[in-house]
Design a protein around this nucleic acid. Sequence first.
DNA 1: AGCACTTTGTGACCTTGTGCACAAGCTCGG
DNA 2: CCGAGCTTGTGCACAAGGTCACAAAGTGCT
Lengths: 228, 228
Amino acid sequence: MADRAGQRRIPEATVARLPIYYRALLETAEAGVSTISSERLATLAGVNAAKVRKDLSYLGSYGTRGVGYEVDHLVHEISRELGLTQDWPVVIVGIGNLGHALANYRGFGARGFRVAALVDADPGKVERKVAGLQVDGLDDLADVVAARDVSIGIIATPASAAQEVADRLVEAGVRSILNFAPAVVSVPDGVSLRKVDLAIELQILSFYQSRQADLGAAAQPAVREAQG
Amino acid sequence: MADRAGQRRIPEATVARLPIYYRALLETAEAGVSTISSERLATLAGVNAAKVRKDLSYLGSYGTRGVGYEVDHLVHEISRELGLTQDWPVVIVGIGNLGHALANYRGFGARGFRVAALVDADPGKVERKVAGLQVDGLDDLADVVAARDVSIGIIATPASAAQEVADRLVEAGVRSILNFAPAVVSVPDGVSLRKVDLAIELQILSFYQSRQADLGAAAQPAVREAQG
DNA sequence: AGCACTTTGTGACCTTGTGCACAAGCTCGG
DNA sequence: CCGAGCTTGTGCACAAGGTCACAAAGTGCT
């Protein structure tokens, strides 16, 4: 039972894995399977079974010993925990290459996320339609956020604009930001910020690959389950 | 001095931050500043100073007490450590929305990474030119990888194709893979795998935002420096 | 040279996360 | 109703990472 008072604390590492379990469970349900063991779920999620059990135990005791977890029930609990039972309108700021791709990304709306607005600073892009949505000007950001009840902002601008856009998003009341710009962005307490940086990922890969080359055929701990 | 035998081990968490320092240092050098303190670098990188010092100390003792670090020297050492002194030809597999955007991403080649090939399974896309490069068929992957000495593979296909593409990349000799597809992919030991997953990032944000809402105005540890 | 001041490098400690191993608990067959 | 066979839930030990605080080592002024 989801204890109410005190609200059990779920470790950050676990939170990062819940979406992976969630996806695996949806696929399992799709396949018509109604029960799943931690072992099986672990395989699907690419982790080990003990971790799955411990992670799931933070949500409550939803398994049955000797049997496993009921897929539908788990899906329900995880989606509740992740807040996927509600709608999350998203604004994408910066409609360049990446912004375009994100705007057109199917499976965005899939899990309750919906691109509600597109914003760009370039007047040449404003009014244009992208992925069926009209692009608004950066100066209208606050209005758009308020009018469409946007709760998540995605920064897809060049690095130089990232911090200012973040500031404007926060000012407009957005409490969750996903930054794709290759720049360090800081936000006040109470605002969640995550980043996705292609260049950094490549450089990390480069590091390990160089190492491997240096070492010749020596053993090297492969990088797995990165970024999680 | 980079001790040779044994090769000091650099913690994974540190490796993930080196690219951030690197970028900050390049900007600092650009601005004509020749010396930087751990405090300043920490601010630019969005971490704390002790962490910067400890991270840098894994590379060697490159600072001068009472003064700071020489920017150019640090840039050089970090780029050597990350393997950025060499060229890394990259193949992008899956030329859909995202693949397109990645192929056109400037600042890709910036740090030694170069899009050397584009591959797609759809015969309709093959031969077409994207970002100045001709798209090759998936069956030619091995040839292309060998001919252009590709060392890093980027998976930008739908989830359903991800594992097979990964297998083919590995088979073709690619030892570093960056997976953008929303699927768990597994690779053999000795191959590095990192993933970037938009849906997961959004779901994590969703979790914390739901929490915040539940708690009303209660204190909540903001999510920072995610994914690092 | 001496002294005040700055900044690095690191040892000690704490927090978080992981993995193992096993008791507890459930099902099912006989 | 009992025992065999699974599978969960978790206590514990350990590994990894982060933070603090301070000695060591440099600079520059007088």
